[in-house]
Amino acid sequence: MELLVASAVGILTAAGIYLILRRRSFPVILGLSLLTYAVNVFLFATGRLVSGAPPILNKYEEVVYTDPLPQALVLTAIVISFGMTAVVVMVALGAYLSSQNDRTNMPAEPEGAGDDE
């Protein structure tokens, strides 16, 4: 089980980084999404893997619970990463529509700077 999770984190990380190194904005966004999964699962796994022991307290008997703290951290991380993805998508879209070009790299010369009007 541990090996599956660790290898999944590794593969997601590698794929995410590879896509982030591309030169168009859309693959970079995809890469960020993959990296987000990787980071979230990584954080989650720091609480160690336990199945069938959710941190919902049982009032009637003593049972084992998994570590709730990483879960709370990851929950907020998931929601925040949505906010981040949304902003990045918006920036990418705005940049593409304004310049008709979805390269992530700024041109060496600011071509046509100030031709907004």
């Binding site: 590794g10 990380t13 990787a38 796994a45």
Partner: peptide, 17 residues
């Protein structure tokens, strides 16, 4: 570069778990 980074991250979490 990505594969090295992935191996590192995966290895780290495996060692942690």
């Amino acid at each position: 570069l990505s594969i090295i980074a992935g191996l590192g991250t995966g290895g780290l979490i495996y060692a942690l778990m």
